[in-house]
């Protein structure tokens, strides 16, 4: 009777999903590099995945980059001319061995019709402008493995320092007689999300054990 009861409980638990099935879980960490004058190289520090929590299955890396700064010009042409200026930077998140994980290129472009030269080279007035420019956050993600070595690199009880670089590539195009330039800064946010299979909880283990004991009792010595 006792055996039938234990087996029945275990069966019911399995049928209604309360049995010891283990679902994947996630854990996220983030770090950032504030907006600074390009070009720069820096690092973000990300805690490793603690193996006591379970088995690391995959890692998602998310890099969000922004670019901001100034674009300025003065047209020296006698007639109105179109100018186009783009503030841009390339940000890269890398492993400690400098292999690339993921990269983004935030940018912002402004176009304007400059009037004929107003006589003053001040990046202002009818024939000049100074633009304060910001880019929308630009994001890119990637998931590993591959490579499988990332699971080893990011498992442990310490931290991992990931290099991040920002190289600007602003550019302008316009008439044959003009002055233009840029001041470019960039910043980055990094988020690392671990997906893992947790170690089952103690209460769950007891349910499993009870079921196994019940089954074993039934198989007790035959008289």
């Amino acid at each position: 009777m006792r055996t039938i009861c234990a087996a029945t409980v275990l069966t019911v638990l399995i049928l209604f999903g309360a049995a010891p099935t283990v679902q994947a879980a996630t854990l996220s960490y983030s770090d950032s590099i504030p907006v600074g004058l390009t070009d720069w190289s820096d690092t973000v520090t990300i805690p490793q995945f603690d193996p006591a929590l379970g088995t690391l299955d995959s890692i998602e890396f998310k890099l969000t980059g922004v670019v901001e700064g100034l674009a300025f010009y003065e047209s020296l042409e006698p007639e109105p001319k179109a100018v186009e200026m783009t503030l841009s930077a390339h940000l890269s998140l890398m492993r400690p061995d400098l292999s690339l994980i993921v990269d983004v290129s935030p940018s912002n472009t402004v176009m304007e019709l400059a009037a004929g030269y107003d006589g003053t080279e001040d990046f202002d007035g009818p024939s000049g402008s100074t633009f304060v420019m910001f880019s929308a956050p630009t994001m890119a993600t990637t998931v590993s493995p591959p490579p499988a070595s990332d699971l080893t690199l990011f498992t442990g009880v310490g931290t991992v320092d990931l290099p991040v670089t920002a190289f600007a590539s602003s550019f302008g195009s316009g008439p044959g007689n003009w002055v233009f330039g840029f001041i470019t800064s960039a910043g980055a946010d990094v988020m690392v999300t671990y997906t893992y299979t947790p170690i089952p909880e103690p209460a769950t283990l007891l349910v499993v054990a009870a079921g196994l004991i019940g089954l074993r009792t039934r198989r007790g010595p035959r008289r």
């Binding site: 004058l37 190289f167 302008g172 003009w178 233009f180 330039g181 470019t184």
Partner: peptide, 21 residues
């Protein structure tokens, strides 16, 4: 004759062009 000049070289830079045709 329409002049056309452009430049790039990092994010912190200034250019100046003078063109005859």
């Amino acid at each position: 004759a329409r002049g056309a000049s452009s430049g790039s070289g990092g994010g912190n830079i200034i250019f100046r062009f003078e063109t005859l045709a």
